[in-house]
Every structure is written in C-alpha cells, then in structure tokens.
C-alpha cells in the first residue's frame, strides 16, 4: 500500500473511531433520557441509576403489564381504571377516559402517557398497546395455553348497564 493510501486509510478509520466514541459517550450520557417510559417500579422507588422520581403533576409515560382482574369500566362512559405492574413488583393505577386500542387486554403490555396525579395514580391522556416479538398461529397459541382472548366488552358492559336501567 502506498503511503498516500495509508494516510487516507488512517484518516478514514480514525474518523469512524472518533465518531463511534463520540456517539457512544453521547448515548451513555443520555441513556436514561432515551427510555420512552418509566416503569411502575421507577415511579414508586425512583430510577435505579439516578434515583430520579417523577413529581406529582409531571407529565410522564409509564409502561407495564395490565394486571389481570383489575380492569374496571364505568358502565355509562368511556372511563376505565386499571392497574399496571412490572417484574420488579411496582404497581401503578391508570385512569383513562378514551377509547382503548384494539390490542388492549388484561395481561398485555401497554404504554400510557399522562399526568401523575397521586404518587401511584396516573391520569392518562393516551394509552398505547405494546405487542411482543412473538408471532404464532391461533391454534398453536391455544395448544400452548396462551390463548389471549380479547375481553368481551359487549357482554361485560351490557350486563352492567342492564342493571343500571
């Protein structure tokens, strides 16, 4: 390799290395800010690395699994209450007054955006369903006991509204 090429090669390689180092430092510094959401545990106990806790009145996103059996619907409006939890044992109540996404069901991962109104309650303005990386035909899912049946809202709410009449 002639010296001119060698020089250009060193320059190009050091350019890549320099940018890589700069980018990794930048991402390292921004690390926790690049997370889309808080987990319920982090809201209750603070972030693991910095201990930062969201304050009441702060607009935040929280992500976790909808706890099975906690979904409560108001029979006369869109108002819903449910609890979300994470694997570290944190739990947060979510209040929401709008249409839930199609994929929303108990046991499903969700991301809710809203205002923290109590230390462990969030008034959501947006609820997004998170789906995982697993795909399988319905028969297989059933055989594996993973039948994520959609909640039958019509039956549930119909029964309740029937009582209120």
């Amino acid at each position: 390799m002639n010296p001119r090429r060698k020089k250009r090669l060193t320059l190009a390689v050091s350019l890549i290395a320099g940018v890589a180092i700069a980018a990794s430092l930048l991402l390292y510094a921004l690390n926790s800010n690049l997370n889309l959401f808080f987990t319920p545990y982090e809201i209750v106990h603070g972030k693991q690395d910095t201990g930062v806790k969201p304050e009441i009145g702060q607009r935040i996103r929280v992500g976790g699994m909808v706890t099975v059996g906690t979904l409560k619907r108001d029979p006369d409006s869109l108002h819903v209450d449910f609890e979300i939890h994470d694997s570290f044992g944190g739990a947060i109540m979510v209040t929401y007054d709008d249409l839930l996404p199609d994929l929303f069901r108990e046991g499903q991962g969700i991301v809710a955006q809203g205002i923290l109104i109590e230390p462990n309650r969030i008034q959501a303005t947006e609820v997004l369903a998170k789906h995982d990386e697993n795909y399988m035909p319905p028969e297989v899912a059933e055989a594996m006991g993973k039948g994520h049946n959609k909640l039958d809202y019509s039956e549930q709410t119909g029964e309740k509204s029937g009582k209120s009449y």
């Binding site: 690049l34 997370n35 789906h131 995982d132 990386e133 697993n134």
Partner: peptide
C-alpha cells in the same frame, strides 16, 4: 434492547 421502547424487540 438498550432502551425501553414501544417497538417490540427483534423476532
């Protein structure tokens, strides 16, 4: 994998 995101991890 590095950050919590709405997008699911690789299948």
């Amino acid at each position: 994998d590095w950050w919590s995101s709405l997008h699911q991890p690789a299948t």
